[in-house]
Design a protein around this nucleic acid. Structure first.
Lengths: 234, 234
DNA sequence: CGATTAATTGATACTTCTCAAATCCTGTGG
DNA sequence: CCACAGGATTTGAGAAGTATCAATTAATCG
């Protein structure tokens, strides 16, 4: 982790996507000056499960995964994050230790906003508070979906759905492949299954021409089939 | 659903447990006068998945379950609620439809606080906002735990853990039985498994003398054994 | 261009689900 | 208070779905 190129909040194109969208010019100016710009290399841990954060990261560009350690130290990926997403706010706001580890999936530039500034904004700007609540409550809804899926769907269904989620989150590159590099193990740790099961099912999907695989790169060729297989309704 | 006995917020013993604990005398007085007291019979639905709530319920006494419909209409129980707990705030704050149904597990008295009042408090009292955020963020952490458990633990482990969770949430009656009446199917819908599996595993736990069963009533006789079986660390 | 890590495939074992049938409760109405 | 209907619980048997272990091949990063 080292200092990155300074990015000014006032001119950040992602601002409208974030909880900071309703700050006035003065507030924005302050945030822009108290924040720090940080760079993480691919694979680097941005925040550690169990520790206490002193602020939040706002991702400028790059990708990250949010994961927890389960029994036997096995990783469970809870969700992904990309540009405009805030990381570490759950722990900061609830006053608990970090319940998850955040790891960069790519070279990532992020802005660190200190705790004091976050609480000052909450204190002074109800609109910001409401944005933070919206964000959290939305995540809570997503978590409920995931819980239901894990509890009720088969591994095959879950894998199909998660391929679609990855597509929705990160989109595709110029060749049509999912625009993120995940190992089979990471996919398994999102689906909640064994690596070998993911491999077998991906082969199946490939044989059925629902996807194309080229090394670690995966392209969704028949999204409707995946929607059907995954029983994805929303 | 009919009018219940009026309960005044000022004298509500549960207030300190709820997000309303930091309201000043005036605010509390207002809430107490705009709220409605409502009574739900055991089994009655308090809020319906997919609908848009016009406020939140604060449970005065009684018990409720929060559940979602999964594929094939199967119920997935996300969590339970009891006196002092707020219901429906996730949807209200995120501005989305209700993502879950809330059903009374017992005869339940609850206070309905209208949406307008909730947003007024958020607008005017940052401490209240912060309490709401704390609440939501804490739930989000719990959801993460549940996700990890569902993805990684066996049905046997999950059942052991959920018996402990039920104990922690509802405590025990004078005979030492878990103080809530759940069908085997409801337990299965919390664990995320088939009803028959729950029945078989409960018999096993009974044979091993970890629990005692008397009809629908269950008593935890050896909590340490359940902690061990469930790999429960927190 | 090695060395290491990741991906793949096969064989086998185990957990869990599903279906079916029997028994037991529980709440309800007479 | 009792009898009954319908739902809930229990048990068994067999089928699926997944996990695990082991061995090979492929890919990736210094």
């Amino acid at each position: 982790m080292k200092e990155g190129a300074p990015i000014s909040c006032e001119f950040c194109g992602l601002r409208d996507l974030s909880a900071f969208k309703d700050l006035d010019a003065t507030e924005l100016h302050v945030v822009s000056h108290v924040k720090t710009c940080v760079f993480f290399k691919k694979g680097q841990v941005m925040m550690h499960e169990g520790s206490r954060p002193n602020g939040v990261y706002c991702i400028h560009n790059g990708k990250a995964k949010i994961s927890r350690l389960g029994t036997e130290g096995k990783e469970q990926i809870l969700r992904f994050a990309k540009g405009g997403d805030l990381m570490g706010y759950r722990s900061l706001l609830s006053g608990e230790n970090l319940s998850a580890t955040i790891t960069a999936l790519d070279d990532t530039h992020a802005c660190f906003v200190p705790k004091s500034e976050m609480f000052k904004l909450i204190e002074e700007n109800p609109r910001f508070s409401l944005n933070m609540m919206k964000l959290t409550c939305h995540e809570l809804g997503e978590a409920g979906k995931l819980i239901t899926n894990l509890a009720q769907k088969s591994v095959r269904e879950r894998l199909a759905e998660i391929l679609l989620i990855i597509h929705r989150t990160f989109g595709e590159d110029e060749e049509g492949f999912l625009d993120v590099s995940l190992t089979r193990e990471e996919i398994a740790n999102m689906v909640g299954t064994a690596t070998e099961s993911v491999i077998r099912l991906l082969s199946e999907f490939k044989d059925d021409q629902y996807i194309t695989v080229k090394g670690r790169k995966i392209a969704l060729e028949d999204k409707n089939a995946l929607i059907r297989i995954g029983n994805v309704y929303d």
